Amino acid sequence: MNDESLQKLAILEEKSANYGTLLFDVDGTLADNMPAHKAAYVAVAAEYDIELDDNIVEELAGWPTVDVAQEIARRHQKTFDIEVFSKRKSAIFIERFIRATQPVEFVTQHLLNNIGKKRIGIVSGGSRSTVSITLEVIGLIGKFETLVCAGDTPEGKPSPQPFLLAAEHLNVDPADCFVFEDGDPGVQAAIAAGMGWIRVDQL
C-alpha cells in the first residue's frame, strides 16, 4: 500500500477501535466498482430508450437494484417491469465488468486485519449472486461471518433493517457495530440502526 492508503487505514483503525463488530458495504466500499455499476445502469437504461444521467447511481448508492430501477422509471415517466430491468442490469454488470473489479485496498486490508479479533459482516444493497461474485473476485469469500443482501429484509437502505439483521445474525448489540459505507443511504441506515459509521470515499 502507498502512504495515502496507509494513512486511510490508520483512520479506519482509530475510528472503529472501540467497536467489537465491523459491518462493510461492498460496492464502492470494499470493491472499487462504482464506475462499472454506473455503466451497467446506463447500458440497460438505453435498452429502454432512457438517456440516464449516471449521477443517480451515486445519489442512490446502497439502494436495492429494484428500488433504483423503480426510481429511474418514476423520474423518466416510463412503465416497465422493474424486476426484468434489475436482472438485466445485473447480467450486464457480470458479463462486462465484474471480473475486472479491484478491491479498495485500505478497506479490504482493515477487514483482513480484524479477522479473529472482531465480528465481521457484509451488508449490501446488491443481489446475493452479484455480491458473492464480487467478493470472490476481490478475495474475501470466507472472510466474514454473515452476508445480508437485497431482498433479505422488507426494506433496504436507507432503512436500518439490513444492518439490524446483520447484528441479529451475529447476536451482537447494534451499538457495538461500526459501519463502513460510501453513500448517503448507507450512512442514514447506520445512524438509524444506532451504529457507528464512516464514509470511506470521503477520506
Rank of each mutant, 00 (worst) to 15 (best):
L6N: 15
Q7W: 00
A10Y: 03
L12E: 04
K15W: 09
K15S: 02
S16K: 07
S16A: 07
A17C: 13
G20I: 04
L22F: 08
L23H: 10
L23M: 05
T29P: 09
A31D: 01
A31S: 01
D32A: 11
V42G: 08
V44A: 08
A45M: 02
E47H: 09
Y48P: 13
D49G: 03
I50T: 08
I50R: 04
D53I: 00
D54V: 07
N55M: 07
E58Q: 09
E59R: 11
L60N: 04
T65S: 14
T65V: 12
V66C: 09
V66T: 14
A69F: 09
A69D: 13
Q70I: 11
E71P: 05
I72V: 00
I72E: 01
I72A: 06
R74Y: 08
R74T: 04
Q77V: 15
T79W: 01
T79N: 11
F80T: 06
D81C: 02
V84S: 05
S86M: 10
K87A: 13
S90P: 11
I94R: 14
I94C: 09
I94E: 12
E95Y: 10
E95F: 12
E95I: 14
R96Q: 10
R96P: 05
R99W: 15
V104H: 06
F106C: 01
Q109G: 06
N114A: 03
I115R: 15
I115H: 05
R119L: 15
G125E: 01
G126P: 12
R128C: 12
S129I: 14
V131G: 08
T134C: 10
L135N: 03
V137A: 03
L140H: 02
I141N: 04
I141H: 00
K143D: 10
E145N: 00
E145T: 14
L147Q: 04
V148F: 13
D152G: 08
D152F: 05
T153D: 00
P154H: 09
P158C: 13
P160L: 05
P160E: 10
F163P: 06
L164A: 01
L165V: 07
L165F: 12
L170N: 09
V172C: 03
D176R: 03
V179H: 04
V179D: 01
E181S: 06
D182I: 14
V187Q: 13
Q188S: 11
A190F: 06
A190Y: 10
A190T: 07
A192P: 00
G194N: 07
G194C: 02
G196Q: 03
W197K: 01
I198A: 00
V200Y: 02
V200A: 04
V200T: 11
